[in-house]
Design a protein around this nucleic acid. Structure first.
Lengths: 208, 208
DNA sequence: CCAGAATGGATAGTCAAACTCTCCGTTATG
DNA sequence: CATAACGGAGAGTTTGACTATCCATTCTGG
């Protein structure tokens, strides 16, 4: 197919497709002459993935580029997912050193008591957790951190489900892509379900 | 206190504080003369809250404005939290009509089988869920939706914890603010815990 | 009391991200 | 073979979130 059809099929405007080609997010089409190219369904899928990562995952295009090269590379699923989570988490917001230290300590307790592996503070999920917990403290909301262990236990249950959903696929490539999609969409889906559930519970507990 | 101290105390640059004042995100200080003002600890707290909403919650300033006027208003906690969730969820990404219809149907099944109240498709969390599920389908990932019921059950457990954390506060104002903070930080904290847990589980199941 | 720093307020400028527009020479097509 | 579409490159646009510069006061330390 050529540009117009690729655009129609994917729902991405022609000008934007050209822009993605320039940025290297979309691989160039196969040349049929010095200045004509043909695109395949792989290009359509790639565009859909880019849309999912930006629209649903909220990733900046620069991160999308990093993620796409990661899944195109031939690293292990584990390493590749590390890159994905790094980009998905984004840069952690800055917080005061004192609060950060307290939060780091609190998280160390948690991982120790749950038998989880310790992580360096540069680890993306870790850095974001530290920032979020530190912010909670700075805002004077300790309740959330007091219950951290209970949240962690439920997070573990969710993670087990996540891995079940992704595991059982045949090839490493499929596991990587499924993992990517499950991570990007999974966060948003769970957040949505949680909000819905909060309304149910708060209706019962706090009253309409 | 005056500008310089307010800035130092909150960690927000003077120019930015002025900008927030102009935008109406921060209420003006108390006048001490026609062109001088004095600020209070309430201003410091407000600035910290704005920082949390933008940095941690990732909200655009326009949404922060809406949220702040909502919590300053005198609506019930339930209505106020509705506004908060609306802004937090943001505009749902657009998806094809066919996929959206399928996702809406799937969600109707879910809410029915869990005995949850049905929601209009304009409902923020609902619209985002529809978009996320529709995207999963468009990307050819059905596994996630097949297990939706299990995720919903866990989301319910998390929501119960959320409400426990917030309930038990004395005044409606405190409940509203705690709810806001719990929602904003809670999503990010749970996502972080989930990522950490995913690594533990995938290490065991998929191997290093 | 007064010189120099700080303040409040207004206007304009900056910067990055993510497109979108306009050309242009070449290629396909009815 | 006229004309519509294409690929490629560069400049322009829009939005969001600041940041910088002025200026006419107002405060403050010596």
């Amino acid at each position: 197919m050529r540009m117009a059809e690729l655009s129609a099929e994917s729902g991405v405007p022609v000008a934007t497709v050209k822009f993605y080609l320039r940025e290297g997010l979309l691989p160039p089409g196969e040349r049929t002459s010095p200045n004509q190219a043909r695109y395949s369904v792989a290009h359509v899928q790639r565009l859909r993935l880019i849309k999912a990562l930006t629209d649903v995952g909220g990733l900046p295009l620069a991160s999308v580029g990093v993620v796409l090269s990661a899944i195109d590379g031939d690293e292990t699923p584990h390493r590749t997912m590390g890159v994905v989570q790094q980009e998905l988490a984004g840069p952690a917001p800055k917080v005061s050193d004192a609060a950060a230290e307290w939060a780091t300590e609190r998280l160390a307790d948690l991982t120790r008591s749950h038998g989880w592996k310790a992580h360096a503070p540069e680890h993306a999920a870790m850095a974001n957790l530290v920032a979020a917990l530190a912010t909670a403290k700075e805002l004077g909301h300790d309740k959330l951190t007091e219950r951290l262990g209970e949240y962690a236990r439920l997070a573990m249950r969710v993670a087990e489900l996540d891995v079940e959903v992704v595991a059982g696929l045949s090839s490493a490539d499929k596991i990587i892509e499924a993992g990517l999609i499950a991570t990007v969409l999974g966060d948003r889906i769970f957040a949505g379900l949680r909000h819905l559930a909060q309304e149910q519970v708060s209706r019962d507990v706090l009253g309409g």
